[in-house]
Design a protein around this nucleic acid. Structure first.
Lengths: 188, 188
DNA sequence: TCCATCTGTCCAATATAATGGAATTTTCCG
DNA sequence: CGGAAAATTCCATTATATTGGACAGATGGA
């Protein structure tokens, strides 16, 4: 049994179903939005196939998400208690950007992420990553510059910013010390 | 021509090739690491196929990435800013319980609160406090015992618990050191 | 220069994904 | 409770992904 693939297939099934239900869409509704057949979506939601990237990007687009945004939601957990030692960590080798998925669950609307951004580094996320979510960013240490759409914000340690409607957003650490911040978001 | 899919296929091709080259791997090397055939990887890198999720998760794993992490590389946020110095703080004189309202806004559904619970102290909130909200609790330091309805949870530093339906909840610090935790909540 | 090895692409076969429409199940309303 | 409508699943077919091994070209060392 290939646990890596089976786990992914199951999580994808749950997430596609959850996103569809949250929008009050039928299979036919989503099929039309995504230009993918009802039968395919039904098989995906019942974990009967491993869909191609072409199908997934269309589904993500229908949900107003990027492919990466969809997969970030897929890779959360159903458990209510997320132990520190089991929280997924991802590091970008190029920038040193370190991201800890503190809590994410398809059955809970709140999500928490802890990020460490090294000196002089930045990350940019497209507006589509923010569709149907509302987000806060709280700086634990260091300084963070957030450019959201046209608005620029300088956040010092302890400051917290609430985001508005979806817009392309850049997080930049323009100082010589690492910046640590928390992202709290709610899915609508 | 489906631009969304074509663009994704081309970006995937470039990224898989780049990640492989950066590691100095041949097609055979990556095929072995990922348990995917050389021919498949060759076709992916030449944008000749749209790979399945099963294949992509194996490739991501071979590169020591999550699927979402891989896709992030393939692809590229009212007073809305709450300054640390202006965040309301409330201390209970009897228990020493210290609560900082990091972020709260009528026009933003997410709320963040930082709590410091002294040793051997506890707070109990009725179920009605949780109506129409969904909440997470993330322990920054110390240990926290949460009794939610009939369920009891022991949280160590770094652990995070997602709450279920409204129930009377007790937060208790049964240790001899202060406990600091963050509450993230979303209003529905 | 030649040969062995490595690397990437091609090929035919197999496995699986995706589909349109039919069939079945579920839901809702009178 | 029954029937209509909506939603989901099934089916047979087509399209495409994946594969092991063959093949062609590149590379490096004797």
């Amino acid at each position: 049994m290939d646990i890596l693939v089976d786990d992914l297939t199951r999580r994808l099934a749950q997430r596609i179903r959850l996103e569809r239900d949250q929008r009050g869409w039928s299979l036919a509704d989503l099929a039309k939005q995504a230009d993918v057949s009802k039968a395919t979506i039904s098989k995906i939601e019942r974990a009967e196939v491993s869909p191609t990237a072409a199908v997934l990007v269309r589904l993500a687009s229908a949900f107003d998400l990027t492919f990466a945004g969809l997969m970030l939601r897929v890779e959360g957990s159903n458990e209510r208690l997320a132990r520190a030692g089991k929280q997924p960590i991802w590091r970008d080798p190029e920038t040193g950007y370190l991201r800890r998925q503190v809590f994410s669950s398809p059955v809970h609307p709140v999500e928490l992420v802890r990020v460490e951004l090294p000196p002089k580094q930045s990350v940019t996320l497209p507006a589509s990553s923010y569709a149907h979510i509302r987000q806060l960013v709280w700086v634990l240490s260091g300084s963070l510059t957030i450019t959201e759409g046209g608005a620029r914000h300088e956040l010092a340690s302890g400051d917290c910013l609430g985001f508005g409607p979806p817009a392309e957003t850049t997080f930049a650490n323009e100082t010589n010390a690492a910046c640590t911040y928390v992202v709290a978001l709610a899915r609508s």
